[in-house]
Design a protein around this nucleic acid. Sequence first.
DNA 1: TAAAATCCTGCAAACGTTTTCAGAAGCATT
DNA 2: AATGCTTCTGAAAACGTTTGCAGGATTTTA
Lengths: 342, 342
Amino acid sequence: MMNIKDIARLAGVSASTVSRVVNGKKYVKPEIRERVLDLVRENGYVPNNAARSMVLKRTFTVGIVVPDAFNMFQRQLFSAIERKLEGYGYGTRFFLVKAEPESEKACLGRLKAEMLDGVIMLLEVDDPEFYAVIADSGLPVVLCTFGRADLGLPSVHIDEEAAAKAATAHLIGLGHERIGLLAGAQFSFGKQRQAGYEAALREARIPVMAGRVVVVPSYTAEAGRMGMKELLGREADLTAIFAVTDELAVGAIRALYEAGRPVPDAMSVLGFDDIDISASLSPSLSTVRQPIAEIGTEAAEIIYRLISGVPAETDPIILPYTLLARETTKRREGRDRNGNMA
Amino acid sequence: MMNIKDIARLAGVSASTVSRVVNGKKYVKPEIRERVLDLVRENGYVPNNAARSMVLKRTFTVGIVVPDAFNMFQRQLFSAIERKLEGYGYGTRFFLVKAEPESEKACLGRLKAEMLDGVIMLLEVDDPEFYAVIADSGLPVVLCTFGRADLGLPSVHIDEEAAAKAATAHLIGLGHERIGLLAGAQFSFGKQRQAGYEAALREARIPVMAGRVVVVPSYTAEAGRMGMKELLGREADLTAIFAVTDELAVGAIRALYEAGRPVPDAMSVLGFDDIDISASLSPSLSTVRQPIAEIGTEAAEIIYRLISGVPAETDPIILPYTLLARETTKRREGRDRNGNMA
DNA sequence: TAAAATCCTGCAAACGTTTTCAGAAGCATT
DNA sequence: AATGCTTCTGAAAACGTTTGCAGGATTTTA
């Protein structure tokens, strides 16, 4: 591997001059600049980033903390962030953390070892020390797709509870009253979306029944399928299901398919997130769209400002969601099974 | 940020000693070791990787080159690689490359700047110079999910053509003869899978008709939907479709749904890859499973051996595929529309 | 033509590590 | 008491950059 001194020797100049040429600095005689540039091209010389960042004390890299098993939603979010940051001359670097808390610790260590310029958290870490350590190491952070009012860190996300409430209200508006919920315990959005579901029911004076709720262990299609089976077993008379995630909804639809209950005729199903495949399903999945591109762009924008020394704005940025009433939700027809309009 | 000298000063020892403690070297008095370790913990000291890799000339990191818009299949592959490499004490780092050839050049530069210990290519780069530069910079490489016989680089993948042939033969075995193909031009698997499709037809003495093939511009569900619409427009009498990708198949099913042609009763659809959602679709998608975990593990294994100095085995590792006959493919019933058993 | 300003260049220090080397200290063996 | 092992420790060099500084060369200004 060529280094700066090799090029310098070849060009008959000092390393300083090569450095100046490579970094486009002024004060290099044009003819020397040309010669060096040629040598750089011929030899495919690229400055070593480790050495570079040692002296500059910055890496032009922001770390993206994501769950080990990141899903399509996070994948798309990442793309949006990447694109925006690239425009600012910054690269990104993944930091995967597994479900185990020990993995969070390890991630913290890796973050510190890397001299990052900033961190975007796509993953909600429970350990408050995690944020504390990052924050008082002076590393810019932004929370993305979730917030933590207690921490005073900038964040960008939707109003999860309001969105889930609107989603549930959509089902209610279609005439549904016995609405099941596929909720999850894993991240705070699980609880927030559940709260939204309950709020919508309460507002419509529909009793919130624990028997209509299943809390699944993970947000996968298979978990959704199992959850739906459970729900079908214990509550035969649901007419609609709100799954707090599109993957869950896909699994729920699968369970209904296996049970011979066609969607949306026998049961309406509503998801959340609008992952890229949702619109292409047959029937297409009704869901709540998070403005992925905007969330990612905004997070990138904030981290860039933070890195550039603009003081942090710690009020959360709340972006608008969109309810997408597609084909898996349908007005409830037929007789009201039990006269009373609760 | 604490550095090694800070810890050294605090402990009243030299940096050398701290280094020895942190790296678990012998020849440090137990009581000093304890004191240093305490200080390290208290202050959350983590050695700076840039400085570390400068002197060690290795980073314990392997680069993973992936397409900018990597899909779930690649996402899962990455997980398998990551897991295996982690066990060997290596981390991974993403290098995204966009569809533009200029982006490949940029990626090459980034790879060189990073002092990686090895590279796993999940993306097929066309530019032969790309491989040439990497190869003669002495950087270990393994191609994953594709091969390049001409380059003499280690690779691990399935026999794409044989798999596609078997897939098509499955449809033929179910009594289908007028089989459409949703092919793609983007990577070599597109052509290889198309070749397999044609080989199966030829073997069954079914004429290969250009009108039954649509080459889509990308491997997305939406592209599959458009392609299928195109196919429906020009060929009304197909009974089965082979889509070279599961995403494409999802889109095809969508187009059929919109056209009122139920799958699998009116049309069988077969995908390829077995992405994680395929089994949970309704009906579940028949497809060809690539052994994702095995491919990833094997690639990680090879790169590890290469890094460790074990001479390269350049014969491609061909792993077995599995045909998954699920619910979207079905025996063709009813009359043979035109008597002749071609 | 002298002085001042500008342009160009190289030396050397610095960034945070690891490791070689040399030497000190302790201990056991002659 | 000298010798040879271990065990321990720190100084210093090295890794590949960037940049402040000093000085030389060139141009501009007076």
